[in-house]
Every structure is written in C-alpha cells, then in structure tokens.
Amino acid sequence: MINIENISKSYDGVLALDNISLNVKPGELFGILGPDGAGKTTLIRILATLIKADSGTGTLAGLDLVKDYRKIRTIVGYMPGRFSLYQDLTVRENLEFFANVFGTTIQQSYDLIRDIYVQIEPFNERRAGALSGGMKQKLALCCAMIHLPKVLLLDEPGTGVDPVSRKEFWDMLKHLRSTGITIFVSTANMDEAEKCDRVVLLQKGKLLASGTPSEITAAYPHPLYAVRANDMYRLINDLRTLDQAAGCYAFGEYAHLSMLSDNLNTKDIQHFLERKGHEDVEVLPTTANIEDCFIELM
C-alpha cells in the first residue's frame, strides 16, 4: 500500500531522514517508533505529500508521492502531531466542515466513525478548544477518516493523552484496521509500538530495525535478567560494574540487565548483589521488550 525507496531529506544540512526504504501492506497497522527528533514527522509529511524528499521515490496506493500528490490527497486521512482542528468551532461544526470539504456529510459517514463518534457526540455543541486531550484526539481521528480514506496517516496520536484514553484510542485503531484501512502511525511510546502489526525503529533519521514486534524482540542478542532490590539507584550502578554486563536500565520496579555472555546465572548475580549489601534481591530471567531492543540498537 505504501512503498518508499531510499528516501532522504535534510533541513539546512542536517539529515532528517537517511536513505529510508519501507513497505506497508494493505490493511496493516504499521508503526514507526522513535524518540523526538528521529524524523517521524518528516516521514509522515512526505507520505502526506506535504513535503518532498530530497532523493528517493515512493508510492501510496500505487500513486507517485510527487507526481500524483493531488490524487493522494483525496484518499488519505491525515492527522498532524499537533491538534489541528478549529478550536473556536464546536465538535459538530468541525466534523461538518471536514465532511463537506471531502464532499460527504456526517450522516453518510456515520457508520464509519460511529464507534469513535459516540464517545464525543455528547459534547457536540462544545468548542473543540475546550475538550480534553483524549477527546481532541478522538475528534481529530473522526475528522481524518470522515471521507473513508484508504490510508490513515497519524502522527503521534497518543502524545498528550492520558493512559486510559490512549488505550481506547488504540483499540479503535485495531477496530479500524479490521475494516480494511491501512494505518501508518508514529509514536515515541514503546507500549504503543507493541500494538502494531509491524514496526520500524527510527533513530536520527536511520532505520534501525523492522519487523513484527515479536520478530524484533526475538532478535535480541543477549541474555536478559529482570532484577529488583530495595535501592534501585544503587542497584543499577552496581549492576553496571558487573563483569560481562552489557547494559542496565530501569523498567518500572525492575532493572533490566543484559549480559554479554551467559557465564553468570541468576544465583551468581544475586550473590554479587547481596555481597554489595542489597536487600530483598530478586533476579529473574526475562525476555526483551521493544525498548530493550531499541536501546540495544541505538
């Protein structure tokens, strides 16, 4: 559905995208994961035909990103990273406006947006600027898909939204995908990336890895342990001094310790920590998540 080859883009000599190629299949929920400044917005804007790549080619639904940009604009739904609806118009007025711009009406598209729209419909007469972050994103999504787009381009829809609304939003995306719409979504959030069918990791304009979330985590090269003790800060510092330690980072109440080899088992690590005076030590073998992979690849 989306196919780009060797796309590069730089701003004032700074490379924002470095030779990116990727391929999104029809009906896929495809994620780009990367920290701020990785080039996610640039990539989405290139797909939305808002900017041109310096080099490389790409097609969306078989249409050329540069030559056929007018046609592409009629079949994509685009949701920018910043809330970009009219704050001084009400929910209904916003929706009505975008429906009319795309030559449809709220009624005609009602079935399409119903699942999302029922949640904001009670606030029909409220101005968009007065909505909560989660509500704003739901309204923006409604507006972006009111014309039954073939491809949805969503730039960090989960940013600035509370965890509950974010989960609801992603449930909606999964539901939408089941209707056959191809969804291309960027995120800086590892949890969101794990909900995608396929994901690419983007860092400083370079593609680090791509595949299904499980393919990416399965490719993690080191033995990995989840370690817990009373003093997390001291724990991490001590673990990093451990012979053969590749890295150690905090994940909630556990620290993830990766080892260059499996010379040491969980007992050895536990003894090491107890000798250092740590209390309530717990060491478990664990599997890598996307974030571990990201840190490893960085």
């Binding site: 118009l89 007025e93 009319n100 711009v101 030559g103 709220i106 009624q107 005609q108 009602y110």
Partner: peptide
C-alpha cells in the same frame, strides 16, 4: 433540519454539500 430532528440517524441520502458554502460558513463563524 433532519439532523436536529433525527439526530444523526444514518440515512444515506446523497448530499453533495457545496464545499464553498461550507468554507464561507466556517470563516464567518471564526
């Protein structure tokens, strides 16, 4: 009118609303 009475019952009558009119309406609202 239908919107106010039927409140979004999904009836698929073909309405090709004038894009220009919608734009002007929005602008006057601003």
């Amino acid at each position: 009118t239908a919107y106010f009475t039927a409140h979004f019952t999904a009836h698929h009558t073909a309405h090709k609303m004038n894009r220009f009119a919608a734009f002007i309406k929005k602008e006057f609202r601003h």
